[in-house]
Design a protein around this nucleic acid. Structure first.
Lengths: 111, 111
DNA sequence: TACTTAAATAAGTGAATATTGATATATTGA
DNA sequence: TCAATATATCAATATTCACTTATTTAAGTA
């Protein structure tokens, strides 16, 4: 393997710890739904609660988790707290993951 | 939103359950390491055990998990059991996740 | 001040999961 | 059939995590 590729590979390996940390957020359907619902612009917690049809503390819990791994930004405006996607790339990753997952599943169901 | 985009959006939403199921595999560093180590071709369990520096039952457990969400293929050849990536797209997803994760972290550490 | 609404936190529960050490199963060759 | 090697599974533990109900904090308003 050329030196540059080698470097990239080691760099990738080194980042797997933090990748798994962020990846944890992708392991829960409710969090995926929340992230996806934010991709059209920031929303207040209560809006998310309504849209998701989840209890307010549960949404708050998941938002905290998403904050922990830096996937969302927060901004308070008076009574309301607005959440927003911190980096749009996570949406692309979720799309790819969903696509792959359905493909894998359909392949299995084909026989 | 145009009808086609709308369709895509609903299709995406529908797949979030299975996406989260597969996403669970991306939430553990050891599984990410195993997947990445398989991207250069299939390997036996004992090879993986050596490379990962993990106990054999633990590797077996994670491989079972990866099998459960169809991310790896298995083939027995005599004494040895070979594991291989089922769909290369998972490697790309891991790369993107790792890249995003390091970026998010470095942005935070910048202040 | 008291009242209202929004959001976060506390505390508790049950289920899932990562890990370990011991054991079982499978395959091959002597 | 026995021994050796490879892999899977079992049992036990510890931890994490999603979720609930109740409570608290924060901010705005009358």
């Amino acid at each position: 393997m050329p030196a540059k590729e080698q470097d990239k590979a080691t760099e990738l390996k080194r980042s797997l710890g933090i990748a798994a940390f962020v990846g944890k957020s992708l392991s829960d359907e409710n969090r995926l739904r929340i992230l996806l619902s934010l991709c059209n612009g920031r929303k207040t917690v209560s809006t998310i609660v309504e849209e998701m049809n989840l209890s307010q503390p549960l949404v708050s819990h998941h938002l905290k988790e998403l904050r922990r791994c830096l996937l969302v930004k927060v901004e308070r405006k008076g009574l309301f707290v607005y959440y927003d996607i911190a980096d749009e790339r996570i949406i692309d990753i979720i799309r790819r993951l969903a696509h792959l997952a359905t493909d894998l599943l359909s392949q299995r169901d084909t026989f």
